[in-house]
């Protein structure tokens, strides 16, 4: 017995030791998140003012101004990409869940996974060739199109996953009422997974709200505010990129504040997603 209890001591020590190691490693992994947040708060807070949200940037050398152009631009681009990307993504997701293991579904699934991993700069190039060149100019259309390509696979896979959770018996209940499959899916199954589908859409939005590369040569940028869907359109990520690399102190401050706002928006989107997910399950 005595021998055993001394072994117990070793076992307990080793248990606590490894637990402590795991906690340390876990903290190391998420530490950058806190550092980023803290640093953005420190650097960006100073520039946070009413003017930041309502005024357009002032010319180089002048003090003041805001990022109103980039904020409205980002909203327009996110709106456009939602309009293009969400219906397509939903359709893909529903097709995947209906076709299950058929050859078409497998191909579709592989294509969507590939699309997820296509570098976003390549998506930007694609949109440039397909929209910017024929339209002879940068535009919100082109930017929204590029962002929607980023959204489609995210929405598609999350929709598929959420539909997979619906028991087959619910499908059968609909079929047994004498309704065609597509009606059962769209009118009876989809309303039941609203929250889950919305979650996927919000996640996709959170993702595209920070995308820079697809916008560089599609929506490009402007310094005046919204000038229509066919005009170059500013966005937070692109403006942050431009201003952060400039030599103007005011602009660099704007970039920090812009980054803070952007991260805050993404954070909020993720938080809403969390709450919605909890309500679904």
């Amino acid at each position: 017995m005595i021998e055993l209890s001394s072994r117990d001591g070793v076992r307990k020590f080793s248990n606590y030791f490894w637990l402590a190691m795991l906690c340390l490693l876990a903290f190391t992994a998420i530490a950058p998140l806190f550092f980023i947040f803290a640093y953005l708060l420190v650097r960006g807070w100073a520039g946070l003012s009413f003017a930041f949200f309502t005024e357009i940037p002032k010319p180089v050398g002048e003090v003041g101004g805001g990022m109103a152009n980039a904020i409205t631009g980002s909203l327009v681009l996110m709106g456009l990409s939602t309009v293009f990307g969400v219906p397509l993504g939903l359709a893909c997701g529903m097709a995947l869940s209906e076709l299950k293991k058929s050859a078409i579904a497998k191909m579709l699934r592989i294509s969507i996974d590939l699309l997820t991993s296509v570098p976003s700069i390549v998506i930007g190039l694609f949109a440039y060739a397909l929209v910017v060149v024929p339209m002879r100019g940068y535009s919100a259309w082109a930017g929204g199109f590029a962002l929607s390509i980023v959204m489609v696979p995210i929405v598609a896979r999350s929709t598929e996953e959420i539909l997979k959770l619906v028991p087959a018996s619910i499908h059968e209940a609909g079929l047994a009422l004498g309704l065609p499959r597509w009606k059962v899916l769209i009118r009876l199954i989809l309303p039941g997974v609203r929250a889950g589908v919305t979650t996927g859409i919000l996640l996709a939005l959170a993702r595209v709200s920070g995308e820079t590369a697809p916008l560089l040569f599609t929506a490009f940028s402007n310094s005046f505010g919204y000038r229509g869907l066919s005009a170059p359109t500013a966005s937070l990520p692109v403006q942050i990129y431009t201003y952060a690399t400039s030599h103007d102190e005011t602009w660099r401050q704007l970039a920090w504040t812009g980054a803070l706002v952007l991260v805050f928006v993404v954070f909020c989107l993720n938080l809403v997603t969390r709450i919605l997910t909890r309500r679904t399950v």
Binding site: S169, I170, E172, A173, A176, L188, P191
Partner: peptide, 14 residues
Amino acid sequence: VGMVFQKPNPFPGL
């Protein structure tokens, strides 16, 4: 020809 199933399966969300 209607059907009632083993487990109650009302449409969720409706």
